[in-house]
């Protein structure tokens, strides 16, 4: 049996997915990155290897997410792609009629506009990460509610509290204020969900035409409160796909399949990378005044890759 592996290493979670030749998702993992992308990828690979059918051959690997380059070098990726393309490829496979993708992840949020199965426009949050997963995590912790209960609390609210959502700092002080004047937790959480949705629609989705079908994915899609706030604000049905939190990884797997259909042999180093001692080191190149930050990647004692330089001197060194 043959399959393709997709790896999405984001700021908060590291996700893996394996698809077969027909595009069926065979297995997937969602793990927290905890600021250690190398360890997270190794752990996720270890877990997924136990779920794979016997004799499974990985014919191609794709990586995406903010640590896509690091993960790509580490496992030997055939294609390294940005998360916008990866998400769009994954989603349009399952929802050929999708015209809008709302994606909210750990530290970024994006909107992807699709027409006739092709991406025609997109936007990502710029200077502000208000309303992404990290902020929700932080607030759940502060309120002493497990994050997976957050959405349920919001749905129980009868009358949501008005929270300012344009900045996490203001949102937090607003929430504290509402607690102090006696609003109940459900109403505050529902208010927060609405504030985040308003912030997203006014900033990230500003000027974009949100047409149905609308697909909502990324880690934050697990929060029913946000889904219901989106439906309330847009007056449209929002679909949450089964694989909402690993869609980037699935897209990366499809991209790997597309790449390998063009011929060639995979660069995948195999599941042995689980046990390799990988480390990175950063250094500042002093050879010119650009002073690029170079990342050095080594396996054991051997340096296997450099990146981060503008001129390519380091990148082409090996």
């Amino acid at each position: 049996m043959k399959g393709y592996l997709g790896i999405d290493v984001g700021s908060v979670s590291t996700n893996l997915a394996v698809i077969d030749e027909e595009g069926t998702v065979l297995c997937h993992r969602y793990l927290l990155t905890h600021g250690q992308p190398i360890r997270a990828v190794q752990e996720a690979l270890r877990e997924i290897s136990t779920y794979l059918p016997k004799g499974m051959e990985i014919r191609g690997v794709g990586t995406t997410g903010s640590a896509r380059q690091l993960a790509g070098v580490m496992v030997g990726a055939d294609v390294v792609k940005n998360e916008i393309t990866a998400h769009a490829i994954g989603t349009t496979h399952f929802f050929p009629h999708a015209r809008t993708i709302l994606e909210i992840g750990g530290q970024d949020s994006k909107i992807i506009i699709i027409r006739d199965g092709l991406v025609v426009d997109f936007a990502m949050n710029t200077v502000c990460a208000a309303g992404t997963g990290s902020f929700l995590d932080q607030q759940a912790l502060r309120l002493g509610i497990p994050i997976d209960q957050f959405g349920r609390y919001a749905l129980r609210s009868k009358s949501s509290a008005r929270i300012a959502g344009r900045c996490t700092v203001f949102a937090e002080s607003d929430m504290v204020h509402k607690q102090q004047i006696g609003c109940n937790l459900e109403d505050i959480i529902a208010g927060l969900c609405e504030a985040l949705v308003r912030n997203y629609l006014n900033n990230v989705a500003k000027g974009k035409e949100i047409l149905e079908s609308i697909i909502f994915q990324g880690g934050v899609a697990a929060n029913e409160g946000i889904q219901s706030a989106f439906e309330g604000e847009l007056g449209k049905k929002i679909y949450i796909p089964k694989f909402f939190n690993v869609m980037g990884a699935i897209g990366a797997a499809f991209l790997a399949q597309e790449q390998m259909d063009g011929g060639g042999k995979t660069h995948f180093k195999g599941f042995e990378v689980i046990n390799l001692h990988c480390k990175t080191r950063s250094l500042e190149c002093k050879e010119c005044e650009n002073e690029c930050e170079i990342v050095e990647f080594s396996i054991g004692e051997e340096v296997t890759a450099y990146w981060g330089d503008r001129c390519g001197k380091w990148e082409n060194k090996l």
Binding site: S66, K81, N82, I84, T85, V119, F122, M124
Partner: peptide, 8 residues
């Protein structure tokens, strides 16, 4: 990320 996605 944005440039790559745009050219894609």
């Amino acid at each position: 990320t944005r440039l790559e996605a745009f050219l894609d």
